[in-house]
């Protein structure tokens, strides 16, 4: 954590809601609710939280991909392109955004099963991909580029001649990561890229992501609910609950000194080797994003809930450099705001 860090992506009071209309009544799903994020160059930023807390929607918003019923309600998303000044991408035209996708910012989907076209050999997928981004190139040039990358990432050589169904799940996931990193994007967004993989394969995929990040010195934003994966790969972690970031800090701070009761639950619920002590899940279940409780959304499940928690959402306290937490227990304003 030395030297001045350059921001690469920043959001300001980002609100992205799903507006649903059912039988004449409107339902608002507050999936991303007032999120301020600052993500730097050359880091791996992890976002953790349970299913249904808005992690995937946040990624869609960061990717500036608003497809109804998802709407951008308010807030701004800035990218810093080519180390120049920040650009608000919410004002960009679809054509301009298309230019940025995969070349500046790329997306690794969760279900690699459905991400690849099942009736095309992988070399055709590569051809489509390269053809639409790098313009007309000869067949030989395309395959040479694809081959080089596949060898560099340690995938088998003959893979381009295969159909997706001939590969195992882990191999397919590594191919989608290879595609997402082909144009050397500055930001890569991964939505649960290792979930549903076996432990050994998961380790291989994490290893591959780390290698890519070290080679390109770019930024990876990684969403997963597995705290073990975060501990292994992330530089900084944001804990998300009910559409809000409730705690953020470096990996050492989050695991060494978790302050929000929800973070503590997430970490303490994991079983460890050599320790058979009884462990408990987070009590209750996550709230519906369409019908959030008043005040701090965690208060119905929180063992330390106080009067004020049921009435008002706490602001951020800054107990340490890079560490912020939104909880009344820590006390708003108890620490001097350092940023």
């Amino acid at each position: 954590m030395t030297g001045k860090k350059q921001t690469i992506l920043r959001t300001e009071q980002l609100k992205a809601f799903y507006l649903l209309e059912m039988h004449g009544t409107q339902k608002i799903v507050k999936a991303v609710n007032d999120v301020d994020l600052t993500i730097y160059e050359n880091e791996i930023y992890g976002i953790a939280g349970e299913s249904g807390c808005g992690k995937t929607t946040l990624l869609k918003a960061l990717f500036n991909d608003f497809v109804p019923p998802l709407r951008l309600m308010s807030g701004k998303i800035y990218y810093r392109i080519d180390w120049e000044k920040e650009i608000d991408v919410t004002k960009m035209s679809p054509q301009e955004m298309r230019q940025l996708r995969m070349e500046y910012i790329s997306y690794i989907p969760q279900g690699s099963m459905s991400a690849l076209n099942p009736v095309l050999k992988l070399k055709e997928t590569y051809k489509d991909f390269i053809g639409s981004h790098l313009g007309d190139q000869s067949r030989e040039e395309i395959f040479e580029l694809a081959h080089k990358q596949i060898l560099a990432l340690g995938l088998p050589k003959n893979i381009l001649e295969l159909y997706p169904h001939q590969l195992s799940g882990g191999m397919r996931q590594r191919v989608t990561i290879a595609l997402a990193s082909l144009l050397k994007p500055r930001i890569m967004i991964g939505d649960e890229p290792t979930t549903a993989l076996d432990v050994v394969v998961q380790r291989g995929v994490i290893q591959m992501l780390k290698t890519i990040q070290e080679n390109f010195r770019n930024t990876i934003i990684l969403v997963t609910h597995d705290m073990g994966v975060h501990a292994n790969i992330a530089d900084r972690i944001g804990i998300m609950y009910a559409g809000k970031i409730v705690e953020e800090g470096t990996t050492e701070q989050i695991f060494g000194n978790p302050l929000h009761p929800y973070t503590q639950f997430l970490i303490n619920s994991l079983p460890k080797f050599g320790d058979k002590e009884v462990r408990h899940s987070v009590p209750g279940s996550p709230p519906s994003l369409a019908d959030l409780p008043a005040g701090c959304p965690f208060h119905p499940r929180c063992p330390h809930a106080m009067e004020i928690c049921t009435q008002q959402m706490p602001g951020f306290s800054y107990p340490d450099e890079n560490h912020r937490v939104a909880c009344w227990l820590i006390g708003e304003g108890k620490y001097e705001q350092s940023a």
Partner: peptide, 18 residues
């Protein structure tokens, strides 16, 4: 290969996949 919830116990060696 099980990721440990402890940033001090990161993997250092590489793994060969089938």
């Amino acid at each position: 290969s099980i990721p440990q919830a402890d940033p001090a116990k990161r993997w250092t060696d590489t793994v060969t996949l089938s």
